[in-house]
């Protein structure tokens, strides 16, 4: 009886995994199709990869995407860490909760609302749509994520640790750099990483605030996909899948080394 139900459960799990991974491998599989469609596999080829590597326009877009992701994650991490430390320093619960609610607004609000409202904001403020508007938007939606990743670490830190540092002669700056930051480093690291992935993954917000001359990978894929199937997107997704997997492996290696649970990566 027990065995039967568990094998049924395994079957179900297997089915879920199949559904989750099939589309991805479907894409990868056809990236080697010389036939040019996603339905009939004619022969093996690297043509689409070759084409991809010679597409300078696309390479520039990839570069843009990466630069935006790294820069926005960096700025968001600094701001978010300072913000989290600030939030913790408020001892009154009501002040803290208010700040946290404000912090979480962007996390729960739909991409479309964020995109539309930022579009209005940049237009009103006279910021030209393009690199800077996209960068600012990405910083904006990454900050609350960093705060949420860092704050639990900060809260978990016993305040006696900072008292101890002060007691041993450390100035405020010393306490920050020698005790607080090293202690919350895993949280900072996770926050930066999350910000990076949110930025790389974002489509909707970027779609709203990007101008004509500037594009990120997500936006580019969207406009390509609207035109129909073209197998260099498959080749691109294969590369992105490989990079993602490497990313995840590295992240888990580092996370397990620094002793934090890495399971709750998203949301």
């Amino acid at each position: 009886m027990e065995k039967k139900s568990s094998s049924l459960a395994n079957l179900f799990l297997l089915f879920i995994f199949f559904i989750l991974y099939a589309p991805i491998f479907y894409l990868i599989f056809y990236s080697f199709n010389s036939g040019g469609t996603m339905s009939h596999f004619e022969g093996f080829t690297f043509d689409w990869y070759r084409e991809l590597l010679h597409d300078t326009r696309l390479l520039i877009i990839v570069l843009n995407t990466v630069v935006i992701a790294l820069l926005s994650a960096l700025i968001a991490t600094i701001t978010g860490v300072l913000g989290a430390i600030g939030i913790r320093s408020y001892k009154r619960r009501q002040t803290r909760n208010t700040l946290l609610s404000l912090n979480n607004i962007l996390i729960v609000s739909p991409d479309v609302i964020m995109g539309a409202s930022f579009l209005i904001l940049f237009t009103m403020a006279g910021v030209r749509l393009g690199f800077y508007s996209v960068l600012l938007s990405h910083v904006a939606f990454s900050i609350p994520i960093v705060v949420l990743m860092v704050l639990p670490k900060l809260m978990e830190m016993s305040s006696s640790l900072e008292d101890a540092a002060r007691d041993l002669g450390a100035s405020h700056w010393n306490v920050l750099t020698k005790v607080t930051l090293p202690y919350i480093a895993p949280g900072i690291f996770a926050g930066f990483f999350m910000a990076l992935t949110y930025s790389l993954d974002d489509f909707a917000v970027t779609f709203f605030v990007t101008g004509n001359g500037f594009s990120t990978l997500s936006v580019e894929i969207y406009s390509l996909a609207r035109r129909g199937v073209s197998l260099n997107i498959n080749a691109l997704s294969t590369l992105m899948f490989v990079i993602t997997v490497i990313f995840v492996v590295v992240y888990y290696y580092l996370a397990s080394r620094s002793g934090t649970k890495g399971a709750n990566l998203r949301r």
Binding site: L20, Y21, A22, P23, I24, Y26, L27, Y30, M38, S39, T197, L200, D201, F203, L217, S218, I221, Y222, A225, G228, V229, I233, L236, S237, M240, F241, T244, F247, V248, L265, R266
Partner: peptide, 16 residues
């Protein structure tokens, strides 16, 4: 799979 770009997953289904 949730880490794979959303657009790519949508695109896969265009093929499927």
């Amino acid at each position: 799979p949730s880490w794979i770009n959303l657009l790519l997953k949508a695109y896969a289904f265009i093929g499927i």
